[in-house]
């Protein structure tokens, strides 16, 4: 299926958010995730299923003012 990951449309085999992080090579403990604008806690990633066209944000600690 195709989903929007951090602003880019990608094809994925992943069925859950946790699968997606591992498929895309993210360091899962060090990122925060949101699905269609809502925060998804680390503990919910396994249970969060992906659907065609969903918007996923995977964010990391960065510099800020």
């Amino acid at each position: 299926m195709r989903i929007d990951l951090n602003g880019e449309v990608i094809r994925t085999q992943a069925l859950t958010l946790a699968d997606l992080l591992s498929e895309q090579g993210f360091d899962a403990p060090c990122v925060a995730t949101a699905l269609n604008g809502d925060f998804i806690a680390r503990s919910m990633r396994d249970a969060t299923r992906l659907d065609e066209g969903m918007k996923v944000e995977v964010l990391s600690p960065m510099q800020g003012g």
């Binding site: 990122v31 925060a32 995977v58 964010l59 990391s60 600690p61 510099q63 800020g64 003012g65």
Partner: peptide, 8 residues
């Protein structure tokens, strides 16, 4: 202060 961004 720090922020959250897409990995750069």
């Amino acid at each position: 202060t720090v922020s959250l961004r897409r990995e750069g």
